[in-house]
């Protein structure tokens, strides 16, 4: 492989990683549940692209496998499973009141991404001198932004997407530092993602049926009741 091709692949990978980060921001900010799902699909495609490019760069068949698994499971099977298990209502929901307004959420997200950069660079350097690209810091940023999505969102679908985006982030870092993890493990992790979608879809359906909402984040009846007046109680 010539130096020019190598450079081209590295640059393309950097482009995919940059767009990946952009979709992670989008998932934090997007109000429409369906738009969140579309962003997540775009994110998974970018992850697959990054894996394929790194696969070419390092001539690693295993990374092609990762790309293929991502290409099939997330853009195709996840939406299909969601349609099968959960009520159609979750797509049409819009979140009017988030825990934080969007500019504040984006500012915090930006701070998280910068933090991820400072965390990721020394990690990537410690693994070895060879090319790591921007995957580690951006993967960590994706993980943190997914977790942040979970804390500011209330709607079932956005929460589910937040969880899956966290996993995407971990993988984004993983494809550059843990390149030869083994196909069995990759397949198992992909299957696991699908089980997550299935179980959460079933739960959302139950919540909608028995409670009448899909804004699961607003369920908050379980907490420590304020200490009740104990005057009339007999202390033994």
């Amino acid at each position: 492989m010539s130096d020019a091709t190598r450079l081209l692949l590295e640059n393309l990978n950097a482009l995919a990683a940059g767009l990946f980060l952009l979709t992670a921001f989008g998932i934090v900010a997007m109000r429409q549940a369906r738009a969140c799902l579309h962003l997540f699909i775009a994110q998974s495609l970018l992850l697959a692209a990054s894996a394929a490019l790194l696969g070419m760069r390092f001539d690693s068949g295993h990374l092609y496998g990762v790309a293929l698994v991502n290409l099939i499971s997330k853009p195709i099977i996840v939406p299909w499973l969601l349609r099968k298990t959960s009520p159609a209502e979750i797509y049409t929901r819009r979140e009017i009141d988030q825990a934080l307004n969007i500019p504040t959420a984006l500012l915090i997200a930006l701070a998280l991404a910068i933090g991820a950069y400072f965390l990721g660079i020394p990690l990537a350097n410690a693994v070895g001198p060879e090319f790591r690209g921007p995957n580690v810091p951006i993967g960590i940023a994706g993980l943190l932004l997914g977790a942040f999505t979970l804390t500011v969102r209330r709607e079932a679908l956005s929460l589910l997407i937040g969880l899956l985006a966290m996993e995407n982030g971990a993988f984004m870092a993983g494809i550059s530092i843990a390149r030869d993890l083994g196909m069995l493990v990759e397949l198992a992790i992909a299957t696991d993602g699908l089980i997550i979608v299935f179980i959460m879809g079933v739960l959302v359906r139950a919540v909608q049926k028995h409670v009448g909402t899909t804004a699961v984040g607003e369920l908050a009846s379980l907490r420590e009741a304020a200490a009740k007046p104990a005057a009339e109680e007999v202390l033994l």
Binding site: L143, G169, A170, A173
Partner: peptide, 13 residues
């Protein structure tokens, strides 16, 4: 999700 990154880093180590 956080632990997954931990296990991947462990693998890299």
């Amino acid at each position: 999700g956080v632990a997954l990154l931990g296990f991947l880093v462990l693998f890299a180590a």
